[in-house]
Design a protein around this nucleic acid. Sequence first.
DNA 1: ACCGCTTGAATAGCGGACTATACAATACTA
DNA 2: TAGTATTGTATAGTCCGCTATTCAAGCGGT
Lengths: 154, 154
Amino acid sequence: MGTMTFDKTSSAGYLANHMARLFAQGLHARIKAYGLSPAQFMTLLELWDEDGLTQKQLIERLDVEQATMANTLARMERDNLVRRLPHPDDGRVRRVWLTETARVLREPATRAAFAQNRHALSGLTDDERRTLIALMTRVVNTMRKRDTTPSSPD
Amino acid sequence: MGTMTFDKTSSAGYLANHMARLFAQGLHARIKAYGLSPAQFMTLLELWDEDGLTQKQLIERLDVEQATMANTLARMERDNLVRRLPHPDDGRVRRVWLTETARVLREPATRAAFAQNRHALSGLTDDERRTLIALMTRVVNTMRKRDTTPSSPD
DNA sequence: ACCGCTTGAATAGCGGACTATACAATACTA
DNA sequence: TAGTATTGTATAGTCCGCTATTCAAGCGGT
């Protein structure tokens, strides 16, 4: 069989990686003045919506591994963005509570994230933006259902 | 002004991050048997196309920072995927050469990456796939031109 | 009441992204 | 040609993903 060519400019996976790195860099540039990093912002989005969540709940809502969240929360506690207090009814659980510092950052940080999205999509029409979001959502949903397909035999 | 709400399910940045993580996990699962990681695979794609590139050339083609590539290449050399040999005409440069090990992996690894893309896009029609690729490409191009827009004043 | 299973969280270790810095080799320029 | 600027890599340090492991607390069945 012929030479295996792989054009990265037309690979969804390559483009997804590249796009995500650019989004993260752009967001980071916009929120670092508030002392936030992208993963911390993502976590705060959930806590701004509902304070006092458990690590387990955050993991489910953000679809990251437990260890990833544990480390992110440790950094956030170090930076005085959250406090983790023991759950009164279950000694295994430490619920995560926003500090006043983090509460105040909601508006400016959210603005910054909107601005980054707006910039990134500035070359697209409204219709195209909706289409992109819808297609990405479907791709995410496809991959979230655990893939059972084995890679083709050589 | 009202409460700042940010719906992550309709945020392009959030979706990009989520999608890229899922792509990376899927690709990694498919190529780890060959001793490859996603960043190593990405680097090999360039070297399979043209052997003996410099670190600088790899950086430009893959749009990652110089330090990122230096570390990736160090791991690849450690794992016997590449060798870095001094450039005869310029003592600063070390050109990167594929080992036989890496050369042999081209076909199976490329197959695995195709399979991951196919799986991820399996819920989309051909038209939708083309649309997604085209839109992501445009978004990447928008963000690659350095953003000068300041975040809106508070 | 006990023993074992399950569950929530922490830790160790690694890859890969970033910024900032350092350094040696080359190129330029007065 | 000497002195300076630029260029190509390497290194240090941090954040954020991941897997694997550990540990304590709760739960269940006998």
